[in-house]
């Protein structure tokens, strides 16, 4: 049995490519990512600045390292919170009374249809400065995906033999949910979690592309791209590095998700076969 599929390997490699510099940036960076040097604005890549400088003469490599760290952190946070909320709501809808089920599932529909931009704006108004509003906005956008997934899987599992057996022993709905159903769904959820990381990172970057995400002087990939957009005619190169990092990051998570899926699928097949 092949344990490491090519997509899993590729995913791990790509994630490491962005993860390692991001972790390194916690301890050291070539330059202060916020230090401006107007003499070297738009500097081309050189020995001093490996990736060149932006429109304020800030070192692009250092800014990319900081931006990927923030993107990873906010992606992890929002997906984790979103998954937690979604799973709880999904289980509550599947095992709770009929009225709760209807209410929660309609609420999930409404959340899904509700524009993320509005959520981000409202949260920024309530929570003020910082990264929290955009993280929570992304988390809210993630909730419906997880609650629907959990809901449908729990509904399938509800009718299965072992659950009926557990119920006949007198196990309560909470015990059934957390001791019997959830473990069997874990594989599927982990896969979803990994590929959701990719979409969360993408969502964060589009929010900060619109100026709704991480605030300057901290850097974020979307913000760097929207800044680069202003200089597309004179300095098109500026748009390349942040986009590539974003692509590698999202691709990495998607491949990782697929690889994990294959792994779990293969193991199941091995068990059943």
């Amino acid at each position: 049995m092949k344990r490491i599929t090519p997509s899993l390997a590729a995913g791990i490699t790509l994630v490491c490519i962005v993860l390692i510099p991001a972790l390194v940036s916690l301890f050291c960076m070539p330059y202060d990512p916020q230090a401006m040097d107007l003499h070297s604005r738009f500097a081309a890549p050189s020995a001093q600045h490996l990736l060149g400088c932006d429109h304020f003469g800030r070192d692009l490599l250092s800014r990319l390292m900081e931006a990927s760290r923030l993107a990873l952190a906010s992606g992890l946070f929002s997906v984790f919170l979103g998954a937690l909320g979604g799973i709880i709501l999904g289980i509550a809808a599947a095992l709770g009374p009929k009225w709760l089920e209807t209410m929660l599932m309609r609420l999930a529909d409404a959340l899904m249809a509700f524009p993320t931009i509005l959520t981000a704006l409202a949260l920024a108004a309530i929570l003020g400065r910082g990264t929290a509003p955009s993280i929570i906005a992304i988390c809210v956008a993630m909730i419906p995906t997880f609650s629907r997934l959990t809901y449908s899987m729990v509904c399938e599992g509800r009718a299965s033999l072992y659950v009926r057996a557990a119920r006949s022993y007198g196990a309560g709905p909470l015990r059934i949910a957390f001791c019997h159903l959830l473990p069997s769904l874990m594989g599927r959820l982990v896969t979803q979690l990994t590929s959701s990381l990719g979409s969360a990172v993408l969502l964060e970057s589009s929010l900060s592309f619109l100026g709704l995400g991480i605030q300057p002087p901290s850097s974020s990939l979307g913000m760097m791209l929207s800044e680069a957009r202003a200089y597309v005619l004179t300095h098109p190169y500026q748009a390349l590095p942040p986009g590539l990092v974003l692509l590698v990051m999202v691709l990495g998570f998607n491949l990782l998700g697929d690889g994990l899926n294959d792994l779990i699928f293969d193991r199941r097949r091995a068990v059943h076969g």
């Binding site: 589009s206 791209l225 957009r229 005619l233 748009a239 986009g243 692509l247 999202v250 691709l251 998607n254």
Partner: peptide
């Protein structure tokens, strides 16, 4: 994998640079 991961606004920018400039 590629199509699912490429950010649409980045692709737009790249195409804009390519075709306009």
């Amino acid at each position: 994998q590629l199509a699912g991961s490429i950010p649409s606004f980045w692709l737009s920018l790249l195409l804009l640079i390519l075709f306009s400039s």
